[in-house]
């Protein structure tokens, strides 16, 4: 019997004496917990990946095959993360917009639909391009969305330094 199998058997025996408590992975009802924090983190990640791709340099105009391989591999990895996080921005914003925002919110914030549409298009644009200005524009729109979101909850917001390598800001409830 392997050590892992032994540990499993032992823990199951202990469970018979001290039954474990149940932990759920999901709540059963809509819990009303939404936060634009992850969308902001993802937008920062897009900026970071765009910057890192831009910073990649070859040692010469015609580098050796091994160096080409290394650069291509690095660009592939950075691009994948950029793609994934641009998509994460869209997903997070869509969920808050679709699940959280209600008609009464829109009466006060009439530009939410337009802003979400802009974020969707901008997130696609940063996937298509390697453009730092466009990535910054995406973060800027996501931050605006975060400010509107917290305002609907009656919370004032502050902009704090993220501490990320992007040196940008995060919008947080005050």
């Amino acid at each position: 019997m392997s050590f892992l199998r032994f540990s499993e058997v032992l823990l199951r025996k202990i469970d018979e004496i001290f039954p474990p408590k149940v932990a759920f992975a999901h709540c059963d009802v809509p819990c009303g917990i939404y936060d634009p924090h992850e969308a902001q983190m993802a937008a920062h990640t897009v900026i970071r990946m765009t910057g890192m791709i831009n910073d990649l340099k070859a040692s010469s105009d015609n580098p050796e095959f091994d160096e080409r391989k290394k650069i291509i591999s690095q660009i592939s990895r950075l691009t994948k993360v950029k793609e994934d996080h641009a998509e994460l921005v869209k997903q997070q914003i869509r969920v808050i917009w679709g699940d959280y925002f209600k008609a009464e919110h829109l009466q006060k914030h009439k530009d939410v639909h337009e802003l979400v549409f802009k974020i969707m298009k901008q997130a696609s644009k940063v996937r298509q391009e390697v453009n730092l200005e466009e990535a910054q524009a995406l973060l800027s729109s996501v931050q605006k969305f975060a400010e509107i979101f917290w305002e609907t909850k009656g919370r004032k917001t502050i902009r704090v330094k993220s501490g990320y390598p992007t040196e940008g800001e995060l919008v947080l409830p005050a």
Partner: peptide, 16 residues
């Protein structure tokens, strides 16, 4: 602490 699910296809909420 901000938390999320692994199963992003079905659980997208961020827990704070």
């Amino acid at each position: 602490v901000y938390l999320s699910s692994d199963n992003r296809g079905k659980a997208t909420k961020i827990w704070k």
